[in-house]
Simulated scan of single mutants.
Amino acid sequence: MSFSPYLHFQGTCAEAMRMYADLFGATDLTLIRYSEAPEEAGLPKGSDRIMHAHMTVGGSTLMASDFPEGIGDPQKAVSVSFSVPDAATGEAIYERLLKEGDEIMAYGETFWSPGFGMVRDKFGTHWMISVPGEM
């Protein structure tokens, strides 16, 4: 058993997941569009939005989709936590996510971690980037 985050977007899922795959080193990104669904599914056939996307990094899966137009409230109060092996790697990932995003907590050393920061990226996804440490 395991938890797998499932993110929702408003038409930017493909762009977001491509960026995340590149940033985190996933090589198995899959994007399935609503337009690829069978006719009998009754989904928006002309839509280029993403019905389902997934990728794997270090044995963990990140999944996502676009809400049908006008529905949903993407990533309102959830953060995706991503652990990294060292502070330099964490800072590089944090800075890339921060481009066109909003800083929630600046990346740096804390009493519980040699490197931790919180950011909302340009797609609205909240991230917690951290180096495992001892309290």
Score class of each variant (00 low, 15 high):
A106W: 02
T89N: 01
L97C: 03
K99C: 02
G90T: 03
K99I: 09
E95H: 09
Y107L: 06
T110C: 07
D121V: 03
R120N: 12
T125Y: 03
G108N: 09
I104Q: 15
T89H: 06
Y107P: 00
K122H: 04
F116N: 04
A92P: 02
W112P: 14
K99E: 10
E95Q: 10
F123W: 11
P114T: 06
E109T: 13
S113I: 09
E100S: 08
T89M: 07
F123L: 05
F123C: 04
A92W: 00
M118V: 11
G117I: 05
G115H: 04
D102Y: 04
F111G: 08
L97W: 12
E103H: 13
L98M: 09
E109G: 05
T110A: 07
G101Q: 03
G124I: 11
L98P: 00
M118R: 14
F111M: 14
M105G: 01
T110L: 13
R120G: 13
R96D: 08
G124S: 09
Y94N: 08
E103R: 12
G90I: 01
P114K: 10
I93L: 12
A106N: 01
P114L: 06
E109F: 04
K122M: 13
E100L: 07
E95V: 02
Y94V: 04
P114D: 10
L97H: 00
I104D: 10
E95R: 11
I93N: 01
G115M: 07
D121H: 03
E103V: 11
E103L: 08
H126I: 14
R96T: 07
E91P: 00
A106E: 07
M118D: 06
G90L: 04
G101C: 02
I104W: 02
I104M: 14
S113P: 09
M118C: 13
Y107N: 02
T110N: 01
L97Y: 07
L98R: 06
E100N: 11
D121P: 10
F111Y: 15
T125I: 15
E103C: 13
A88H: 04
T110F: 06
R120I: 11
E91K: 15
G90Q: 08
Y107V: 02
Y94H: 12
M118T: 11
F123M: 00
W112S: 12
L97T: 05
D121T: 08
E91S: 08
R120S: 14
I104C: 05
G90F: 00
L98G: 03
G115L: 05
M105I: 09
W112L: 08
H126Y: 15
